[in-house]
Nucleic acid binder design. Structure first.
Lengths: 130, 130
DNA sequence: ACATTACATTCCCATATGGGCATATGTCAA
DNA sequence: TTGACATATGCCCATATGGGAATGTAATGT
């Protein structure tokens, strides 16, 4: 099998740089396809296809206005991604503090008995199934 | 051209469900490849390949321990994703409040003169280049 | 040096895209 | 109804994967 279909979820949808660009562009206000095409300098069919993908995963909403289709980012659909990344927040904080300690130790060579930080040993944390 | 290479950035890397699973699994503590294989029920070559991708974009770190390779999630590399999703936080909050208003209006039919929320009109916000 | 363990790579193949072009659709203006 | 606009789709092609099997490689034990 190949990669999971791009249309399957928000994670795949935002993996495309242009789709992120589109989401950023229409986050504030709904816009017709043509404006997106002009602003981002992409082909019209290309933009329509990207919008279709974004629509499928719920990342954008559409509304018809005459012959134009007004798209707008549906920010709520981005929450799952935000939440997933948030679960790592505590980790990068720990890691940052360790980096900080190392830096300080370097400036002040006196051994302050701080914890080790480079190449952690095993068993310093519970390893039961995530 | 086809999709941008998966190895190009964190967004593409985490688009793969298994890679996210791996990141979750080794977020707390470094683990040898074999353990990841057993725990996630994936093929060994497959896991090695995913780890290689994650390593390239900096989402994991490695350390050799005898014949084993201990991988661990480098949470900091996830910050960019977290920050990107955060830029939409204010939007989904607005959207949520609008949904809330609609719900309240529905329960209390008296027109409170609140703002429109369904199908916004054009020009209600500056539309200059993002 | 040889067998074993733990991973990393390489090959091959089916499939998912993404872009550009041409064309089908839907809508509004005469 | 005909013509012009604004989008959406279909088609074709080059390319990027991802998985599984087989094989290469590094490190350990005897």
């Amino acid at each position: 099998m190949a990669r999971a279909a791009t249309t399957s979820d928000a994670f795949n949808a935002v993996a495309e740089p242009r789709r992120r660009a589109i989401l950023n562009y229409i986050a504030l206000e709904e816009r017709p396809v043509g404006e997106i095409v002009d602003s981002l300098g992409l082909g019209q069919p290309s933009v329509s296809k990207h919008l279709r993908v974004l629509l499928r995963v719920g990342l954008v909403n559409v509304r018809r206005d005459g012959r134009r289709m007004l798209y707008r980012t549906n920010a709520q659909a981005i929450r799952p991604l935000h939440e997933w990344t948030s679960t790592f927040e505590r980790y990068w904080r720990h890691q940052l503090s360790r980096v900080k300690e190392r830096a300080e130790r370097k400036n002040n060579p006196s051994n302050d008995g701080g914890p080790e930080f480079t190449s952690r040993r095993k068993n310093d944390l519970d390893s039961s199934k995530n």
